[in-house]
Design a protein around this nucleic acid. Sequence first.
DNA 1: ATGCCTTGAACATCAAGA
Length: 300
Amino acid sequence: MLKIATFNINGVRSRLPALLEWLDREAPDIACLQELKAPDAAFPIDEIRAAGYGAIWHGQVSWNGVAILAKGMEPIESRRGLPGDTGDTHSRYVEAAAHGVLVGCLYLPNGNPQPGPKFDYKLAWFERLIDYAARLHDSGHPVVLAGDFNVVPTDEDIYNPKSWLKDALLQPESRECYRRLLDQGWLDSLRARHPAERIYTFWDYFRQHWQKNSGLRIDHLLLNPQMAPHLKDAGVDRWVRDRPHASDHAPTWISVDLKVQKQPATQKAAADKPAAKKAAAKKTAAKTPAARPRRAKPAG
DNA sequence: ATGCCTTGAACATCAAGA
C-alpha cells in the first residue's frame, strides 16, 4: 500500500518541526508540499534526509515554492514549471517519478482580488494546467496530480458559500476550469472516496474558523485511469491543523494498492484462449469502478 | 468595504495569502 499526501505547509522553515512530526507519525511514501516560502538554498534538505526522505524542490524567495518528498528514495524529477509561458517566474509546479507513480505537485494561483490581473493570471495558469494535464492523463503511467488547487469545487466543499461569493476560489470561471480538468477523465479521489461527507482541507486564521470547523476543500489529489482503480482510502490529517503555530492547511492523503494481482497459472493459460479472454475482459470491465468523476451539479 | 491572523522581507510596515 502506498500513501500519497499533499500539504500546503505555509513556510517550510517556520513549519519544519510540524513537517517532521507529521512525516514521523503518518509516514507518507510520497509528500507534495506547497508554499515553501523559501529560496532553493534555504530548503531544509538535511533535516528531511535525516527523517528518511529524498526530495526535489523548486523554491522562490518569500512566496510560492513546491517540493516532492519520497520515503527511502530520491524522486526522479521529470519537470519543473508548467509549459506554455516562459515569462512565468512563479515556482508553482514540479513533477517526479517515485515508487512507481508519476507525481505532479502544483500550487495554483489564489487569484484574489477578483476581478483583476491576479484573477486573470489564475485563469491563464489553469488553462496551461488543463493543456498539460491532458498529456499526463494519456501518458499510460499511473499519475497523481496533487496540490493546492485554490478552487472550492462545489458549494458542498465549503462551510458557507455566502461568505465567499466574491472570492476567487468560488468563482464560476474557477469552478468551470476545475470541472473541465476532471472531464479529461481525472478522479477527484477525496470526493470519490467520501461522496456525501463534508471534507475540509483549509481553515483560515481568522474568526476562529478552525475551532468552528469553518473550512474549505481546496487541496486535491486527482488520479488518471491507470491510477484510479487502485484507490483504497483517502482522508485529511486534521490533527496537524490543531497544533500550535499550524499551517492553515492540513495534509490531505490517499492510499493506493498498485500491486499487480497475479493470476493463478491455470487461469492465465485459460485466459489465452479467445473465448475465455473475452469473458475475462467482460468480467474486468464489470469490476472496474467508475473512473469518470461525476459531474458537479450546477451551483444554485 | 474592511479587518480579522500569519508569514517573510527587513526591522515599521508592507505584500500576500484565501
